[in-house]
């Protein structure tokens, strides 16, 4: 039961990855692409980490550390990239 659930979550994470990464191919502004990527990279990766946590609960400290790292750093990186890339286009 847990095994099936973890596989399902992994597949959902992959679907999120695909959905966010395909926005890179569209001809939109950098900020729209950044939004798609932050959804895929944060949410998709978090779902996959939860799936791995269900699969091997024995390694929970490591996976929990990964989860916290991912949430904190990826949101911060999203803000930094949005700030640095949009500031330039205001000057143009």
């Amino acid at each position: 039961m847990i095994d099936i659930l973890s596989y399902l979550l992994l597949v959902v994470g992959i679907v999120f990855w695909f959905w966010g990464t395909f926005q890179l191919l569209s001809r939109q502004s950098v900020l729209v692409k950044l939004h798609g990527l932050s959804v895929s990279d944060t949410l998709g990766s978090m779902i996959m980490l939860v799936a791995l946590l269900l699969k091997i609960p024995r390694e929970w400290p490591l996976l929990l550390l990964g989860l916290i790292c991912l949430v904190l750093w990826n949101t911060m990186l999203g803000y930094v990239l949005a700030y640095t890339s949009s500031d330039r286009s205001e000057h143009d």
């Binding site: 950098v30 692409k33 950044l34 990527l37 990279d41 990766s45 996959m48 991912l70 990239l81 890339s85």
Partner: peptide
């Protein structure tokens, strides 16, 4: 900035792959 976005997502994805 497109290249930076690609770099950001690849560095996240490779780390996840190593973890899996």
């Amino acid at each position: 900035w497109e290249k930076m976005l690609a770099f950001a997502t690849i560095s996240c994805k490779t780390a996840m792959m190593i973890l899996v």
